[in-house]
Design a protein around this nucleic acid. Structure first.
Lengths: 328, 328
DNA sequence: TTGTAAGCGTTATCAT
DNA sequence: ATGATAACGCTTACAA
């Protein structure tokens, strides 16, 4: 490994001069600077990140923590984050799993963005308490070192629920997320408000898990109880896909016997037959905003919590309620 | 930030004793160890990664470089890598974009796995020359510090091409990857061999890009030239999806006018109507193997290049060729 | 068993 | 404009 020491020797100057030259300080002659730069290049000098981090007490790296590396939601979100980070001279790294949590307290990264239910709030508050900067995308957490950039879950769930009602449906199944999910809880809260305003509609809650398997199980239950067309609001698209999937080889069809709406507008939904109705939001903007907020925190700026707005996407998976259609 | 110095003060011992105690050395009394451990816990001590890396000249972090964070192929692959890394005491981070390349030469990571055509071979060879360890998944590169874990592209392309022929097709379009893609070139080579053995079949190459847009454009061309049923081999699934998509609102249908096969068996294909025929391989195993090989390299072990085997997945997107069917 | 001290590669203060 | 030097937090020979 070639260090500034090697350069200083070859150039016949002190290491501090080398450091100044390399960092573009004005304290050094143009002539010596260019000589040093030439030697650095010749020796293939690359600064050592550990040494620099140790001294400067920052790494210029931001970490984002995900539950796993699957999941269709993340692509645009991460690209958005990366773009903002890079523009501000930060690098972005993606981590997953409990093992990698240490990156934050060990100061391998300057700050963290959290989109991982399994990363416990208690732990996050602990880190925040030790002055680590954090942006959470999946919970409410109150601490000066923590900023929230949350989806407008309530607006989304309200849009979806009211859409089903407008289409004339009177029996609505709700397939929830896993226990402890903030997003699920928020969406449920909004649905309950809609339900209160629409007592003539029958609302049935089915516990889910935000994965395909949850949608599949929900489909089985809905088919078992089937008597007439019903609406189903899967609280995320992935479960809606599982739902469709389970229904595919039965005599029941989406948009006819079962009217289905999801949440997230993940890419896959565009390729479903029929097109899944769902709730949309800009994943890229979500990522961009998260990165911006974190960088502001790191710079010591004041930050307010942010909200990501949502819209309804109509699809043929939800049709107007008509006369009863029996499964054939 | 609390350091071993703070602990040593509070415990009334030297910093080296603290270090030994913290690292479980036998050179220290059980009594002092437990006393030190207690104090460390009390003070919320967390070792500083930069300092440790600087001293030990390793970070115990492995980086994987992807073209972007989208892409359905990566989920299982990354999970496989993570599992192996964690089991061996390494952490995995995911990076994307030219900016983050520096992580390798700056020694923020101990080694790299490359799945990014845009990461130039020249640059990789340079790093390898400076003793950095690398595993490539997307090219052939000969250097003692570089190991290859490649798909068996030739077997896959041969399986697909021969499958189309077996089904009685006599006109086969090939939609390629972008220029410079190793995978695409390998697959084409194998197809040319099959073509040579089957001169009665008409083979037509359409330049693609491994993205949906490439498949869409290919679909337009195929429809323009349409006279009778034809087979299409998209050299990856994503283009096949684009192809289907473009055909969806026309009178042409997959499995009837156009017989389509892809490559990769990404999750989305399972939800297509009709089910896409494709080439399958274990993405998880690919990731596991890549991580294993890199860790071996880092340990100074000898490593041979590895190959990931593939299988054919049949789907209704390819049917037997029958009498001519005209688009209606 | 514990302490002293050197050193990892930087940055940055203070002299010169 | 340049150099000597301390410091960042840790590991590890070597000394006691």
């Amino acid at each position: 490994m070639v260090s500034i020491k090697d350069i200083s020797k070859k150039a016949g100057v002190s290491i501090s001069t080398v450091s100044y030259a390399l960092n573009g300080s004005t304290k050094v002659t143009d002539e010596t600077r260019s000589r040093i730069l030439a030697i650095a290049k010749e020796l293939n000098y690359v600064p050592n990140a550990a040494a620099r981090s140790l001294k400067k007490r920052e790494s210029r790296i931001i970490g984002v923590f995900l539950t796993d590396f699957k999941g269709d939601v993340y692509g645009d979100l991460l690209d958005g984050m990366k773009e903002v980070c890079n523009a501000q001279g930060y690098d972005l790294i993606v981590c997953s799993g409990k093992q990698s949590h240490r990156m934050l307290p060990e100061r391998m990264i300057d700050g963290a963005v959290i989109l991982d239910q399994e990363f416990e709030s208690k732990e996050l508050l602990q880190y925040a308490g030790r002055d680590h900067k954090i942006v959470v995308l999946d919970r409410e957490l109150d601490h000066p070192n923590i900023n929230q950039v949350l989806l407008d879950n309530k607006a989304g769930a309200t849009l979806a629920a009211e859409y089903l009602i407008e289409q004339g449906h009177h029996k609505v199944y709700i397939v929830t997320g896993p226990e402890g999910s903030f997003d699920s809880a928020q969406r449920m809260k909004a649905i309950k408000m809609v339900a209160d305003r629409n007592p003539d509609v029958e609302w049935i809650e089915i516990p889910g898990n935000f994965k395909k398997s949850g949608g599949e199980r929900a489909a089985e239950r809905v088919m078992e109880e089937y008597s007439s067309p019903a609406a189903v609001f899967c609280l995320n698209d992935e479960m809606a896909i599982g739902f469709c999937n389970r229904l595919a080889d039965t005599e029941y069809s989406i948009g006819e016997h079962v009217h289905l709406i999801g949440f997230d507008n993940i890419e896959l939904t565009r390729y479903m037959q029929p097109r899944l109705a769902t709730i949309n939001y800009s994943k890229r903007k979500w990522g961009e905003l998260a990165a911006e907020q974190l960088i502001k925190l790191l710079s010591g700026d004041e930050v307010e919590h942010e909200r990501i707005y949502v819209t309804l996407i109509q699809g043929e998976s939800v049709a107007k309620a008509r006369m009863q259609v029996n499964a054939t």
